[in-house]
Amino acid sequence: MPDTPVLQAIGVTRSFDVSKPWLQRTLTRKGRLLLRAVDDINFSIARGSTLSLVGESGCGKSTVARLAVGLYAPSAGQILFEGKALSAARAQPALRRRMNMIFQDPYASLNPRWRVRDIVAEPIRAFALLSSRSAIVERVGALLTQVGLSPADGEKFPHEFSGGQRQRISIARALSSEPAFLVCDEPTSALDVSVQAQILNLMRDLQMRLGLTYLFISHNLAVVRHMSDRLGVMYLGRIVELGPGEAVFRTPRHPYTRLLLEAIPDLAMTGKPRTPVGGEVPSPIDPPPGCSFHPRCPLANARCRIERPAHTLLADPQGEVLVACHAVEEGRHAA
């Protein structure tokens, strides 16, 4: 079925139990303390396309990434991979092989005691994609070359590489199982811009050639603009704006998206000061009532402090955009 999205999240929530003896003492509140890292989110990713997620540090992007490949189970809601429940899909090696993840932390995801060639070959062996030794050696060499390393680097151990080189090893590893769906959590954050350009071009080439589907996470908004077909903006565990990437970049509608785009550093050095999103970053343990962005929102009013905004569907020349904001719904956001 060509129309079935590769990945679909339906009302997905993920909470973490953060009750601690110490915390309980401090808060003088008894009982369990839950941190809702991801709160009732919905999205789908069509085959061969890229959905990017952006948002403040701690807003839940990596948690979504881990949910999307089944490393975390949702506390509520459902994730479908090619139309099947993710947990059922992961039970089948043939489907499990089709998804992989590049982790935010390249250090933690590489086994320090393994040689790089074994790290990269591990998925090939685990899924028995190639059997002959020489075919594996050749494939690993080709993968290392693709990410700008050399086949001879396979002999070395992770600690012999720089940060960006390790990140490239984890990219080579993620590509080695020939996944159809790849979750990329900050895949190029440790790379200089020229290697970054090489990797991003490689990712786009693979997408064009093999129809790869990406869930892409980055704080670098220029990179996100380059890579995304669709873009989701997250705030405190929720998706507050979701639509075609160009629609969101050209006409940001949610007040948080607008502030986020204004906070980008300025390479032209016009001396224009950046406007960081003002106000306190709220605690995800005790999120503000109503719209959780209201303490920092220039458009907040009484309704925002009480009622949580639902998603409004808006038309844009690029396609439909979903925005969770009362001001947008009431049409008082245009500025």
């Binding site: 390393l149 811009v193 970054q196 071009n201 220029a222 603009r225 160009e246």
Partner: peptide
């Protein structure tokens, strides 16, 4: 290096890159 920086203003099909890799 400066030419490889993706632009926030407009989207291009391919990013400029420096071909090849740093020598070992």
């Amino acid at each position: 290096l400066m030419d490889s920086i993706p632009s926030l203003q407009h989207r291009v099909g391919r990013l400029r890159q420096i071909d090849g890799a740093m020598p070992r």
